[in-house]
Structures are given as structure tokens and as C-alpha cells.
Amino acid sequence: MASATPLSRIALTFYTLVALIAFAANSVFSRLALSNEQAVPLIDPSSFTAIRLASGALMLALLMVLTSAKKRSTQDLATENRATKHTLPTQAHGSYLAAALLFVYAIGFSYAYVLLDTATGALVLFAAVQISMMFISYLKGHRLNVLEIVGALVAFAGFGYLVWPSLSLGSETLSITGLVLMAISGCAWGGYTLLGKGTANPLFATGYNFIRTLPLVLLMLASVWLLSMLMPVDPMQSESAGLAFHLSTQGIVLAILSGALASGVGYALWYQALRGLSANHAAVLQLSVPVIAAVGGVIFVGEQISVHLIICTSIVLFGIALVILAKTKHKL
């Protein structure tokens, strides 16, 4: 099979920058749609998740069709098919486990953003992804060196400082429920990322994984509908907003933007960028996502960035940067 054409520096920079902005945009879109600070949220978390995954699946399916059509026009199609005949079903087409983790990530993400602001949610999500991937690597036999241990401890200390005010008596500055949901979401995304590592065709793997989430989406919607019938709730109550359907035109548009553009196109561009990035460079670049999301929260959602959050973000990202640096040195 002919090797892929190397990316130019301009193309690599463009793909990377747009993809990172798309990742942060997911947090902004979700917070705009799901914020409980509005009289009535624009959309409920389950509907947002369903529309996001469905529109993402549709966009990725379109990209797969266009990619397949482009491949058919090349003269080495037969050679490529022979080279990938044995790897395509298990690698390029993803897996049901990966789809399940993708669904857990998406549903936890949506419900968490009912309770967390944009910057905090992005920080917790990103840190949980990195920490879970490091933990899974440890379970697989990767022994942590001193710098990795120090980095992990620093990151956990940053988390501790983040949640400490909320654990104090009488303090409700941060939702512990939201933190737990976003941490679960991040761990699921970390597992999903590791499952997709080294796939023969990441675009097709992601596309089929999105499509495989659709039965879970239908099951989720049926469960929410059943719960709303058995336990009628007031949609004005933020803690119960996820147990009743609520749709608005703005909410639907934001969910489509999150799914089709920030997730579908964003993931496709990120996979293009990964052709020219090492794993460590990719990890370092993702350190910018919580910062971009925080800026987006200030500009588009009107949120305030506290000194406490800035300090927490700096501590957590510094700890994760130490872990990434340790991995880089270990490979040299």
C-alpha cells in the first residue's frame, strides 16, 4: 500500500489548531445549551446527547462515503484492499466496547455540564483523560519513574485544591455530582482513545463507533421517557432536568454544531493532524484545550474566571506536563 503523503507544515498547523478549537468548542456548545443558570435550559441533557451522537454519526458517515469515493478513484485500490483485508474488520471498523465508552463519555459530559461551568468542566475532563490513560498503562505493566509519580501527585493535588472549597461545611461553590460525572466521562474517553490507538483507519473506526452508539441512544431516550412517566418532575428544577425532555430550536442547533462540527469534523481533522504529530506532542498540545475552553466560556457564555480556578488549572496542567515530559525522556 502506498504510504500517505506527508503533511506540510502549514497543513499540520491548520489541522491541529482547528481540531483543538473544536475540542474546546464542545465544552462551550454544551454549556450554552445545558446551563442551569437559565430560567429553563435550552435542551435537556439526554436530548442533547442523542442529537450530538446522531449528527456526529451522520457527518462521519458522509466523510467516510467521500473518502471511499476518493480511494476508488486511485489505481492502487486493489493493492490496498489486499494489504488491509485482515485488519479492516477489527481495527478500521472500531468495536462495540469502544462505542460503549464513547456513549458513556457523551452522556456523562452532557449531564456534567448542567452543573459545571465551561472552564472547570474542560479541566476535569482533560485531566481525567490523561490520568486514566496513565493508570491503564500502569496496569499493563508500564512502571512509573520518579518524574511521572511527581507529576501525578501534583495533578491530584490540583484536583484536591479545586474541590476543597466544595467539601467545606456550608460551601456549594462546586458541584461534586458534576465533578464525578465529568471524571467518569474523561475516564471513558481515555479508554476509548487507548482502544483506538494504532487503528488502520481512524476515520472509519470513529465513524462506525458513532453509528454503534445509536442503539444505546434509543435505549437512553426510552429510559428517560419511562422515568418521566413514572416520576413526573418539574423541568424548572435543575437537579431533575435530565428526567424530562425539553427541546428548543437553539438547543437543537447547538447539539448539531457539537456533534457534526466540533465532534465529527473536529475528530476527523485531529486524526489528520496526528499523521504529523508524535504522541507526546499531541498530548502536550491538548494542554491548551482547557485554556481555550475557559476563554470561550468568558466570551460566549459570560462566565467569570476566578483566581482559584486559574491556580487549580495551572497546578493540574503542570503535573500532567511533568508526566508527558517524563514519557518523552524515557523514550530518548
Rank of each mutant, 00 (worst) to 15 (best):
L167Q: 07
V150G: 04
G160N: 08
I184M: 10
I184V: 15
W164V: 14
I149S: 06
Y161A: 11
N145W: 10
R143S: 10
W189L: 02
H142D: 07
T177W: 05
T177N: 09
V180F: 04
L179G: 04
G158W: 01
A157R: 04
G158F: 03
L169F: 14
Y161E: 03
A183C: 11
G186S: 01
L179A: 07
P165K: 06
I176Q: 09
L179P: 04
L174H: 05
C187F: 09
S166Y: 10
R143N: 09
L153S: 15
Y161R: 12
N145S: 12
C187Y: 02
G160D: 11
I176V: 13
L181M: 09
G190D: 07
V150Y: 13
G158T: 02
A152T: 15
R143I: 13
W189F: 11
I149A: 05
A188C: 06
L179K: 04
L174C: 07
G186H: 00
R143K: 11
S185M: 01
L179R: 02
P165S: 02
E148T: 13
V146G: 00
L167P: 15
A188G: 06
A152P: 10
T173S: 13
L147P: 03
A157E: 00
E148V: 08
G190H: 11
R143Y: 07
P165G: 06
Y192G: 12
